[in-house]
Computed example of a mutant assay.
Amino acid sequence: MTVANAIPYEPSLEHPEDNEDQVRRELIETLRSISETTFANSGHALRSVHAKSHALLVVE
């Protein structure tokens, strides 16, 4: 998709998936586990993952 044919965001385009709450809970649990493991191994509160390294995608 090029900038010329990009669709501008508007709230009516967003529709939560049926299992979005479950996915959110599992993602929080996984990231928290990574954070706790990182702290336990290093003794420091470090960022456990890069902020832009995770995403959820739906592909047609």
Rank of each mutant, 00 (worst) to 15 (best):
M1S: 08
M1C: 03
M1F: 10
T2G: 13
T2A: 14
V3Q: 05
A4K: 09
A4C: 01
A4P: 00
A4G: 01
A4L: 09
N5Y: 02
A6T: 07
A6K: 05
I7H: 02
I7R: 01
I7G: 01
P8M: 02
P8Q: 02
Y9A: 02
Y9I: 01
Y9N: 02
Y9D: 00
E10H: 15
P11K: 05
S12T: 11
S12R: 13
S12D: 08
S12Q: 13
L13R: 03
L13F: 03
L13A: 04
E14G: 08
H15W: 07
H15A: 10
P16C: 04
P16T: 03
P16W: 02
P16I: 03
E17S: 11
E17K: 06
E17F: 11
D18C: 09
D21F: 00
D21V: 13
V23K: 04
V23Y: 04
V23A: 07
V23Q: 03
R24P: 00
R25W: 04
R25L: 12
R25N: 07
R25Y: 05
E26M: 15
E26R: 15
L27M: 08
I28V: 10
T30W: 14
T30Y: 14
T30K: 12
L31A: 04
R32E: 08
S33I: 07
S33W: 07
S33L: 15
I34F: 09
S35M: 12
S35T: 11
S35A: 14
S35Y: 05
E36A: 10
E36S: 11
E36N: 10
E36D: 10
T37D: 06
T37A: 15
T38V: 15
T38L: 10
T38W: 00
F39A: 11
A40F: 03
A40V: 03
N41I: 11
S42Q: 03
S42N: 11
S42L: 05
S42I: 04
S42F: 05
G43W: 00
G43F: 01
G43L: 01
H44E: 14
H44P: 02
H44Y: 14
A45S: 11
A45P: 00
L46E: 06
L46V: 09
L46G: 02
L46I: 10
R47S: 12
R47T: 13
R47L: 15
R47I: 08
S48Y: 01
S48L: 02
S48N: 09
V49C: 08
V49Y: 07
V49D: 02
V49M: 07
H50A: 13
H50S: 15
A51E: 08
A51G: 08
K52P: 00
K52G: 08
K52T: 12
K52R: 13
S53R: 05
S53L: 03
S53P: 01
S53I: 04
H54P: 00
A55D: 11
L56M: 06
L56R: 12
L57K: 07
E60R: 13
